[in-house]
Every structure is written in structure tokens, then in C-alpha cells.
Amino acid sequence: MPPSVHHLLGRNIISSTTPSTAISGRFQQLPQQLRRLSSSRSLKTEKRGREDTATAEASSPSSRLTHVSESGSAHMVNISEKQVTSRVATAACAVHFSDDTAIKLIQENQMKKGDVLGVARVAGIMAAKRTADLIPLCHPIAISKVNVDLDVAPGSRQIEIRATVTCDGKTGVEMEALTAASTAALTVYDMCKAVDKGMRVEGLRVVLKDGGKSGRWEML
């Protein structure tokens, strides 16, 4: 009996009692059946390959959350082996007003609580220095400089805020910049809420970071 017939017997495609003419007909169909079998195996192999690739990518350092340990618990990242480099980060956001009233009072320094832009600027600087007290897993950083700019956009009803933080350290200052910008915006909100209850703080984001292993990144 040909080996191929033994193969068909083993896969229950034919039985030992199958007539010879039927065996002959099924034997002629063998190449097509083997092609389907081979195709099925190829698809399974390709699927396993994709799954293995996805697993490898998910476990690579660049795709993992650095503040989550292998057991899934939150922890502070160990930066002891990192190199000290000059680092900078800039964050931005905006306070949008519902009408022109607040903008006019700010420009004329007529708000009852005082100089809105000046107070918000100092608040942003102070917040940057206290970031590690506010964000649980941030490292305390010896900040070199904090610069907070608040500008009334010409012809608009908004104040644009940008906060830039620099340091020489082992970890970046993105969180310090974000904290400075958002706190400055919240200070504007607090000082203006009596005259505009429809204000919105929008667009908080990092627009620039530089230094460290990953180098420079800038939002286009």
C-alpha cells in the first residue's frame, strides 16, 4: 500500500474497508488536501509569529510603563545609574474667557484680587519647585531655573501660558513644567472667576523636552 494511502488511513480520510476505486479517487485529491493542510499550518505559524512579535514589543523597555513594577505595583523609578545631563522642558496651556470683561480688567490691572498675570507667574514658579510633593512618584529635583510667561493673545479672549524648567540632573523636568503651567492657569481662574464663570483651561501639554538619553523632542 502506498505511503500516501497510509497517511489517509492515519487521518481517517479513508478506512481499510474503503473500495479501491474510492481510494483511487481520494488519492487523486491528495495534493489538494495537502495544500489545504499546508496553508492552514502556514496561517497558524504566521499567527504565532505575530503574537510572539506583539509579546516581545509589549515587553520591550520602550513600551513599558516605567512607574509600574513587574508585579504590577506602582513604584519610584531607580535613576541611580543615569548620567547627570542638562535638561529642559516646556509646557503650555491657555485660559479661555467667555467674554471680553476679564481680559479688559486684567490689562487695566483692575481685578479686585490684584495683578492677575504677576500673581499667576509667581504661583507657577512656586508650583514647579513643589512638584515632587504633589505628584507621588516624581523625584525631587534641584531646579536651575523656572520661567513662566503669560500673554494676552491679541484679538482673542484668552491668555496663553508657557512654562520652561531647566536643571542639571538624572531625570527630566516635564512634570515640573506641566505643574507650573497648570498652576499658573488655575491661579488666573481663581482671580477671575468672580467676573467670568464660563472660563475654560485647555490644551495642557509638553511642547519641548531636551536632555538625557532620549535627546530632544519638540511638538510640531
Rank of each mutant, 00 (worst) to 15 (best):
P140A: 04
C138V: 03
D133Q: 11
S60Q: 08
H67N: 10
G49R: 12
A58N: 08
L186A: 05
I103H: 01
H67L: 01
V119M: 10
V116R: 11
I135H: 07
S62K: 15
R205T: 04
G25H: 15
K82Q: 09
M111K: 02
Q110E: 15
G25Y: 09
P136A: 02
V201G: 02
E108Y: 00
E218N: 02
L186Q: 12
I135A: 07
H6E: 15
L37I: 09
L208F: 11
L9Q: 05
E218S: 04
D115P: 03
S16K: 15
C93Q: 13
S63C: 09
M111F: 03
K112M: 13
K145G: 00
P154A: 07
L150T: 03
D168F: 01
W217S: 03
P140G: 03
G25V: 10
R200W: 10
S24I: 08
A132E: 09
V207D: 09
Q29E: 13
P136F: 05
R130C: 10
G49C: 04
G118W: 09
R35P: 00
Q158P: 02
T164Q: 09
V206P: 01
S15E: 13
S20H: 13
T45W: 11
Q32G: 11
T101V: 12
V5Q: 09
S38L: 13
E46R: 15
G198H: 14
L105Y: 12
A89G: 01
C192V: 07
T171G: 02
M191H: 09
K112S: 14
L65H: 13
A102C: 13
K197Y: 06
D133H: 08
L30V: 11
T179F: 05
T179G: 05
A120C: 07
A142V: 08
L117G: 02
S144Q: 13
S4E: 14
N147V: 14
Q83H: 12
L137V: 08
V148I: 07
A54P: 01
A132K: 02
L105S: 09
V5M: 10
E174F: 01
R35S: 11
I106C: 08
I159R: 08
I125E: 11
P19I: 06
S38T: 14
S69G: 09
E174S: 06
G118Q: 14
T53C: 10
E81S: 12
V95E: 06
Q28Y: 09
T171D: 02
A92P: 00
P154N: 04
K104W: 00
N78Y: 05
A92K: 15
E81I: 02
T21C: 00
E174C: 01
Q28I: 15
N109M: 13
S42E: 14
L137H: 12
H67A: 03
G25W: 09
T45N: 14
V77D: 08
